[in-house]
Computed example of a mutant assay.
Amino acid sequence: MNFDLTPPKHGGDLEAWQRLEHGAQHWLDLSSACNREPWPIPALSSKLWYELPDQFVLEEAATEYFGQAPLAIGAGTQQFIEILPPLLQKKRAGSTVMVPKMGYQEHAYCWRKWGYDVLEYQTVGELLSTAWDIAVVVQPNNPTAEYLGDDESQQLKTLLINSQRCLVLDEAFLDATPEHSWLNQSLPRGCFVLRSVGKFFGLAGARVGLLFGESQYKAAARSLVGPWPVATPAVHLVAAALNDKAWQAEALESLAERHDYFMATIVPKLNTLFDSQAIQYTPLFYTWILDEAQANKAFQALHSVGIHIRLGQGWVRVSLPAGHEMQRLNAGLVRLLQGHQLKELR
């Protein structure tokens, strides 16, 4: 293993910025891309803090919600991103891994950490004509918001069936558009699917992720995550969230309503601020591909009015605000666009 690699940066880091910048305590945090109207946490029985976790109730809820049983449940999809390299190394799956050039950087980082040869691709289509042993596809991609097309999905499935390759499909952001999920059908040989409750459900702090794939990997995956990867309160809370069909329907309606308002009222102002209309989005976040210098200036300008977003290399990402946050965001953008910061951006 290579422990000298520099870990990737992440969003959801408002408290770190608050420690760096005076007066940041009341900033609006739109950096993490998790649902800003999360599943409401009910009162918890104190006994949940005293007992070791039994995942049975969560496994039942997950099987019902996703349509098939998970191989393992762990501490967020991040834990499975960490264990898949040693899992597939043990299975002698090969050493060449392809990851998206623009995407969740922990994928590339973890494969490199375990000594794999990591190559980057620009488009999923490259996977259909390139030699590789393992590939990572994120749909929708974070931050590019791209989904697999139907033809691409079918060609990748055919490729897996007719080869010994492995595909890691990261569906962490897919709950708001479940029609795209590969879990809607039986998974092909060599496919692993990652799902999360941190995005659509807004339960990032619960640290719960799920791994789906061939049953032959079940024992190895559970051995690698260890005996109690998810705390007892999180087990019961997430099971309740997955079973809460009424909230899920309401959340989808809320996302659609907030999206309409955001596109009509907020996006024109952000287009002006970023001097770009190159927007791509999912139901949970909006990304602009920008010149790197412009992205940095826009990020700093938004900080000047107490708005924290995700800054990447040549892109910025804005989480869809909660309904009650829209006016605050709009007012901050109005102040910004009326002030001297806009002149500095141009």
Rank of each mutant, 00 (worst) to 15 (best):
K297N: 10
D4N: 15
R328A: 11
Q300P: 01
H22L: 14
L87P: 07
P8C: 11
R189W: 03
V193C: 04
L48F: 02
H259N: 15
L302E: 01
W17E: 13
N35H: 13
H340I: 14
S276I: 10
E64I: 05
C34D: 11
T232S: 10
E126P: 02
R36W: 00
Y261F: 12
S223G: 06
V118N: 01
A221G: 02
E179D: 15
F56W: 07
A43Y: 05
L329F: 06
S31R: 01
V193I: 06
A220D: 13
A251H: 07
G323F: 04
D29N: 15
R328C: 09
V137R: 06
H259L: 12
D13P: 00
M1T: 09
V334W: 00
E253S: 11
A33M: 10
W114G: 02
V57A: 06
A33C: 10
C191P: 00
L128A: 13
R310T: 11
T6N: 15
M98F: 14
L194P: 00
D170Y: 12
N142T: 13
A241C: 07
Q327W: 08
E344L: 11
F173K: 08
P321H: 10
I161F: 06
A43N: 11
G23W: 01
R222Q: 15
N330K: 07
Q216C: 10
P85Y: 05
P140S: 02
A69T: 14
G76C: 05
G209P: 04
A249W: 06
A75K: 15
A278S: 11
D275V: 07
A93L: 09
V97D: 02
M326A: 15
E146H: 12
W315F: 15
Y116T: 07
A75E: 13
E344H: 09
G11S: 14
G103K: 00
D29E: 14
G190V: 03
F299V: 07
R189G: 09
V318F: 08
L302N: 03
Q18F: 03
Q277M: 08
E120P: 04
